[in-house]
Simulated scan of single mutants.
Amino acid sequence: MDLLSIIGFLLGFTAIIGGTFLHGGGIENLVGAAAAVIVFVGTTAAILLQTPMPTFIHALKMLRWVFKPPAHNPKALIERIVEWSNAARKQGLLALENSVETESDPFIKKGLQLLVDGAEPDVIRNTLDVELANREHFDLASAKVFEGMGIYSPTMGIIGAVMGLMEVMANLADPSKLGPGIAAAFVATIYGIASANLFFLPMASKLKAVTNDQSRIRELVIEGLVSISQGENPRNIESKLQGYLH
C-alpha cells in the first residue's frame, strides 16, 4: 500500500471538515444534495463526453494504483536477468524456454520469447519499444481522465454557485432566506475546487508517476534482453543495469 496516498487522502478530508469546524460551522454546512449533483454528475458527464470507452474503463482499473501501485523490485529483476544471461551463455538461448513458460509478466514473457526464437537484437529492441510506447500512451491517456475531472469540477462548482445565487435573488423579498441561501450556493464551489485540488489532480499526477516507473522498469527489461541477445558478459550486463537503480 502507498502510505503517503492514504495519509494525503485522509488529510484532504480533514482539511475541509476540520476547517469548517474551526470557523464555527458544522458538518451540515458542507452538505448540499443539489450541489453534489451539479458538480459530480456534471463532471462525470463532461469526462464521458471527451473520453473513449476503453480509456475510461482502463482509468477505473488504474484507480487502485493510487493506493496500491504495481509492485516492482528492480534489484530482483536484475538478478533474474543476470541468471538468464548465465544460462544463455552456458547452454544457449533455448535454455530460457522454461523461463518463458513460467513468466507471469506479459511484457517480459514477450521479450523472452523473442530471445528464445533467435530474433536479432534490433528486432527485439524495436518490437519491445513499440509495446512500451503503446502501453505508456494508453496508461497516460487513462491518467488524464482524472486530470480532466480536475479541470471540469471547479467550473461545475461555479455553475452550481451561480444557480444557487439565482435562487437567492428570486427570494430577495424574504431576508430570512438570504444568508442560508448564499451559504448553500457556495457549497457547490467548495465541492468543485476541493475535489479538483485535493483529489482529482493529485490522483492524476500519482498515476502518471506510477506509469513512468513502469516504463523505466520495462526499459530495464529491454536493455537486459538485448544485451543477452548480443552475448554480453553477465557481469557487464549487471553493471549496466545497475544504472537504472539510481
Rank of each mutant, 00 (worst) to 15 (best):
P202F: 12
P180Y: 11
V123W: 01
L94P: 03
N73T: 10
F200Y: 15
K90M: 13
L114M: 10
L172T: 02
L77H: 01
E136M: 05
R135I: 05
M203R: 10
L198T: 01
L93N: 04
D139I: 04
M149T: 00
L178M: 13
Y152N: 01
T127S: 15
A87F: 09
K68T: 15
G118Q: 10
P106S: 12
I182Q: 09
S142I: 06
I190N: 10
H72S: 14
P69D: 12
G160I: 11
A87T: 01
L172D: 03
M156E: 03
G118E: 03
S99W: 07
A133K: 15
G92V: 03
D117Y: 09
A161G: 07
E101K: 15
L93Y: 15
E120C: 07
L93I: 11
P154G: 05
R135F: 04
L140V: 12
M169P: 01
S205Y: 00
P154I: 08
A76Q: 12
F199K: 11
E147H: 03
L207V: 14
R125S: 15
S142H: 02
I78L: 08
L178P: 05
I158A: 01
G160K: 02
W84Q: 04
F138C: 04
V82N: 05
K75M: 11
D117M: 08
V162H: 03
F107L: 03
E131C: 05
P154Y: 06
M203N: 07
V187S: 12
S195E: 11
T102E: 14
I190A: 15
